[in-house]
Design a protein around this nucleic acid. Structure first.
Length: 612
DNA sequence: CTGGGGAAGGGGCCC
DNA sequence: AGGGCCCCTTCCCCA
């Protein structure tokens, strides 16, 4: 696999030019990096999402891991990374990401000399020592003191309140936007990143009405997902809450111990992998960037490459150039896709990528109040020691919940095995997986290749099957069929078990406990308290909303061991596995037809009962 | 062209 | 909060 860890590391070393044997093709490393950056701008093979403030950046795990041990430790476990917004702003991260992919420090937006102080802070936090060293040199040259990157100039961000007024736009950065951006309001221009940047909400109503409706990443061009495809039908408003931890598996507390690197130019402080970093500190800042390319315009990149046409790296593009998107609607192609990228969710290739219309704002009232202004304002935390680990994510923190316990430490989310999501607090030692970068999310075991991961995932399915067989022949299936029979004949029968003293005041439903009743009563509310940060759709339950957000971001932790197809829900995988096993537990009592999905049986029964 | 079936995405909601 | 299940819906294939 061209984007495999080894290939990448090789590329990285080659890029330095001071390690390893001379290359036969001197421009090879440049071309490789160029291709990677191009793929980034297209979202092609991007397998990680980095959230910074209200921006989402797509990137390649390998590239990030090769650039920073900090990223390396993060991407090992997650497809979604949330960075401490006190340490790095979205605009700064944009520059850093550009730097990682180009070796150049690109002008900010509007075009201006990079704020090296800010960059230094962020680079140190992200453990990009060579970028930090470059920033220090720049600062020295400019005669500016450094080491106070968190000062009032701070992160170069507008105030929180201002950022909250950012348009509710899932902003993909298409080439056509580049020019128009120049005159954009600050919020918007701050919001616009590169092609791989999407913007989550955090918007005031003014922002919504003034700047237009959310834009779904149409046609899968660059999108992280789609707006709701059905059901809600775009019924959501465009107001959002910020700071949702979308990835239960994403450690809110990165293991960074970036402090010392802030003031050190000493290469000895670099870990091994960092020594191999591609980030040539001598790369001259160039007044334009491969980050704003004409998509697909590899040869028009500002980098001066020799013989790009001849480069075998063109193969990186994949068969037939950019990945098919809409064509993925074809089921067979979907499976093909799944086989190609079994180890990482592909958030960008979904059959339902097309925007299904604007998000009306009719449900928006009162949502402005829901924006956690207090949290955001309070989190500036300028006085926090530099080396201190980043904060957990916003609301979770406010609620006194430490996400690190949830996901980073306990690993309970990872599965029954109590996945050891251990993040080291100092230095970088190999996490338990070493170079086994393909990690089974349910049990947190690492594997050196996607094939081995798939084989491992298959053992999960086999274990599951074994348990089923031992515990009674296909309990799930038969139970499901029974439930179906119940549902069709006596829908309320399932409520019979146990006392249910808590009765809904609005309907006849009863519940075993008060919490469930409260939860249910929300379904009677006109206002839905949990808005999606991306499309603004409203939900009555936070869990439903976070699940919905995962579908936006393409987080699919559950992989089929047979075909590699991935799902957002375990239940979907269980359902899908019947495709491979041939199990059809749902039988029509009228005609004997059997189905793998209960819902298809229901559809089928309608056919029986529908007036002809 | 149409209808049925297979497979999958997404939301609601209870546990 | 997360899992699980139900329902609606969509898309595709095929007869």
């Amino acid at each position: 696999m061209v984007s495999g860890p080894l290939a990448l590391r090789w590329c990285v070393w080659a890029g330095r030019g001071d390690m390893g044997p001379d290359m036969e093709l001197p421009s090879h490393s440049k071309q490789l990096l160029l291709q990677l950056n191009q793929q980034r701008t297209q979202g092609f093979l991007c397998d990680v999402i980095v959230m910074v403030e209200n921006a989402v950046f797509r990137a390649h795990k390998n590239v990030l891991a090769a650039s920073s041990v900090y990223f390396k430790s993060l991407v090992l476990h997650d497809n979604l990374i949330s960075l401490d917004t006190d340490m790095v702003s979205s605009a700064v991260f944009q520059q850093i990401l550009d730097f990682i992919y180009t070796g150049r420090l690109l002008p900010g937006e509007p075009p201006a000399e990079p704020n090296f102080s800010t960059l230094l802070t962020a680079a140190s936090y992200l453990q990009l020592p060579e970028l930090a060293a470059l920033c220090r040199r720049k600062l020295k040259r400019a005669g500016k003191p450094f080491g106070s990157g968190r000062g009032s100039a701070g992160l170069g961000r507008p105030p929180r309140s201002q950022r909250l007024a950012t348009a509710s736009v899932i902003q993909t950065r298409y080439p056509g936007l580049v020019d128009g951006r120049k005159g954009a309001p600050q919020e918007l221009s701050q919001a616009k990143g590169s092609d791989d940047e999407l913007f989550l909400g955090g918007l005031s109503q003014e922002g919504v009405h003034g700047l237009g409706r959310p834009v779904c990443p149409g046609s899968g061009e660059a999108g992280l997902g789609s707006c709701s495809t059905n059901g809600g039908g775009g019924s959501g408003s465009c107001e959002q809450e910020l700071g949702l931890d979308l990835s239960k598996k994403s450690p809110p507390l990165p293991p960074a111990t970036p402090g010392p690197s802030l003031t050190s130019d000493d290469p000895a402080q670099l870990s091994d992998s960092q020594e191999g970093s591609p980030l040539s500190t001598s790369a001259p800042p160039v007044a334009n960037s491969a980050s704003y390319p004409e998509l697909g315009g590899a040869l028009s990149e500002p980098m001066e490459l020799e013989g790009a046409e001849d480069s075998p790296l063109c193969l990186l593009e994949g068969p037939g150039g950019p990945p098919p998107r809409k064509s993925l609607r074809h089921a067979a192609r979907k499976k093909e896709w799944a086989r190609k990228e079994p180890a990482a969710a592909s958030p960008f290739e979904r059959r339902d990528m097309a925007p299904k219309g604007p998000c009306p704002g009719e449900e928006a009232e009162g949502l402005g109040d829901r924006v956690p202004n207090g949290i955001l304002a309070g989190s500036a935390a300028a006085g926090r020691p530099f080396g201190e680990p980043p904060y957990p994510c916003k609301e979770e923190e406010e609620n006194g919940k430490d996400g690190s316990e949830d996901s980073a430490q306990s690993g309970s989310e990872g599965g029954p095995a109590g996945a050891p999501y251990v993040y080291r607090q100092e230095g970088y030692e190999p996490v338990p997986y070493g170079d086994n970068l393909y990690v089974c999310i349910p049990c947190a075991k690492g594997f050196p290749s996607s094939e081995q991961l798939n084989a491992h995932v298959e053992t999960h399915a086999e274990e599951e099957l074994l348990i089923k067989e031992e515990g009674g022949a296909y309990e799930t299936g038969s139970a499901g069929a029974d439930e179906e029979a119940e549902d069709l004949s006596a829908p309320s029968a399932s409520l019979a078990a146990g006392p249910r003293p808590f009765k809904c005041s609005a309907c006849e439903k009863t519940y075993k406990d008060a919490a469930t009743l409260r939860q249910h009563e929300k379904t009677h509310w006109l206002a839905r308290p949990f808005p999606c940060g991306i499309c603004g759709k409203m939900f009555t339950q936070r869990g439903t909303m976070t699940r919905h957000m995962r579908s936006h971001l393409g987080l699919k932790p559950f992989a089929c061991g047979e075909c590699g197809m991935r799902f957002t829900r375990q239940y979907r995988l269980t359902e899908h596995m019947r495709v491979h096993s041939g199990e059809k537990p749902y039988e029509c009592q009228l005609c004997g037809g059997k189905f793998t999905q209960q819902r298809n049986l229901i559809s089928h029964l309608r056919m029986h009962t529908a007036p002809s």
